[in-house]
Simulated assay, not measured.
Amino acid sequence: MSRRQRFHDFYARKSNVTGYDVSHPPATSARGLLTEAAASKYEYRGDKIADAVVVRADLNGYSKWAADKSIAERVALLSEFFTAVVGDLDSSGGIYFRDEGDCVVGLFSNYFDTNFSYAQAEPFCRKVVGRTYGVAKLTAKCCVAMGKIAIYQKAHEIGTDDWSAEGQPFVHAARLEQSVPSKPAIYYFENEFQPTVLSTINFVGSGSKYNWLHETENMQVPGLGFDGGWTKIRVIDHFPEGRTMP
């Protein structure tokens, strides 16, 4: 069993009990069924260049909050966050790729899901950004990048359930996360967002209430070859209390 599958199995069981994973009933599922499903979903299927969406979901303000907190308090908050994110990934068709502190890297790809589309990550991001976490009620943001990735086994992974993946979307999502403000929002590169996700937007008429606001901003994202680092970023802000369209 790979590390990814073990991570998935642990938090998927918790998400079923807590009700985070809306694709399954809150009642406990059989451990064997969960393990079997994860094994199929996470299995290595041979070397391939695949279409993918990489999402980095991380907590806003976690480092500042954690500075004076005990290990137990940190673990409790991260456990709640991981449980929610794994449930969201399951119900949205994505998989857990890795975790980096308070950041979960999710992966959507036609390598794992025959129903894959580039718009698939949008519902996942809205779930993650649309709630708060822990007694601190921390919010989260999602940074999204799309494109081709390579999936393969390194020499030490051959004969095991583990596999590796790399490609520009991983780099772009990481650079984007380092460059954007920490607030409850979803961030896309505008040139990737337009042709793939625009059709999923629900337009709101005058006088109607909305919770999500789409804007395009010029931001500096260093290290990706943009002129001066500047590029257009689609920002989808979340307003929990809602706003009314003029």
Rank of each mutant, 00 (worst) to 15 (best):
F7M: 08
L213Q: 13
L77Y: 01
L89Q: 04
T139E: 04
P25Q: 08
L176V: 07
R243F: 05
T28D: 13
V22R: 06
E190V: 09
G87W: 02
T160L: 06
C103G: 11
S91R: 11
A136S: 12
P195T: 03
L213I: 09
Y62I: 11
Q220P: 07
V86K: 02
A66K: 05
N115C: 14
S91G: 12
V128H: 02
K183E: 14
L59P: 01
S117W: 01
S2C: 10
T231P: 00
T18K: 10
Q153Y: 03
K14L: 15
G32L: 12
V197T: 04
Y11E: 05
E122I: 04
P222V: 09
T18W: 09
G228P: 09
C143T: 07
G205V: 06
Y96H: 15
N202V: 14
A185R: 01
A30G: 11
N110D: 15
H238G: 02
G94E: 02
E122Q: 09
S109W: 09
G134V: 02
G94I: 00
D58N: 09
S199K: 15
V105K: 05
W212M: 04
D90Q: 10
F170V: 00
A165C: 08
S91M: 12
V54G: 00
R3M: 15
V85H: 01
N191E: 14
L176P: 00
C103E: 12
R6A: 14
P181E: 15
G207V: 10
T28M: 11
H24W: 12
H214S: 06
D102I: 03
R3Y: 14
D99P: 04
L213A: 11
R126E: 04
S164Q: 08
L89C: 05
V128R: 01
A27G: 12
T216D: 11
I49K: 13
L176T: 00
H24T: 08
V180T: 13
Y42R: 04
V128M: 05
T114Q: 15
I158T: 11
G106P: 03
S70K: 07
Q178R: 12
F193W: 08
K148S: 10
G101V: 02
